[in-house]
């Protein structure tokens, strides 16, 4: 009897339940995206204010950590196909990006005096901090770009 009902068409009770679950998934996605954007905005504002009030740099850690929580909520709200696409994009795109970083680091290491010349040309006051920041960016940006490009191609190819 129950199999017959399943085969004959949609079960209204199941349909209602599914609709509730679907809208809940969508709501969680929207909520987490707004949360991440809000945290990022707050983080940027606090970092700007930290130039005048250095203690705010520590306060900015709160929205940074909160954004990680929202990111976890967002990834858990995705269905498994979308989630796997993000995992694959991070694995392949991110790894290719890290390879680009590695080769760039190697190339820079083989150019003696290049960093000093660049710092001299820019005329920055704190070369060590600039060097640290540039190193972090060089490690982070290509991996993120690789992830984004891989994900964007997968997204454009979806049916």
């Amino acid at each position: 009897m129950s199999r017959k009902r399943l085969n004959s068409g949609p079960d209204l009770r199941t349909m209602t339940m599914t609709k509730i679950v679907s809208s809940s998934r969508q709501q969680r996605k929207t909520f987490s995206i707004i949360g991440m954007a809000g945290c990022f905005g707050l983080f940027m504002v606090l970092m700007q204010l930290a130039l005048s009030y250095p203690v705010l740099a520590w306060v900015s850690l709160a929205p940074a950590l909160a954004s990680v929580v929202f990111a976890c909520l967002w990834i858990s709200a995705l269905d498994e196909v979308a989630r796997q696409t993000h995992y694959r994009a991070w694995s392949w795109g991110g790894s290719i990006g890290l390879m680009v970083s590695l080769f760039t680091f190697l190339w820079l290491a083989l150019q003696p005096g290049l960093f000093d010349r660049a710092i001299g040309a820019l005329g920055v006051a704190e070369p060590a901090m600039v060097g640290l920041g540039a190193g972090l960016m060089l490690a982070f940006v290509p991996a993120s770009l690789g992830y984004f490009i891989w994900w964007a191609v997968a997204w454009l190819r979806r049916g």
Binding site: P10, V21, S22, A82
Partner: peptide, 8 residues
Amino acid sequence: EKLDVSRQ
């Protein structure tokens, strides 16, 4: 909709 996943 029945599976609670996207159409894609």
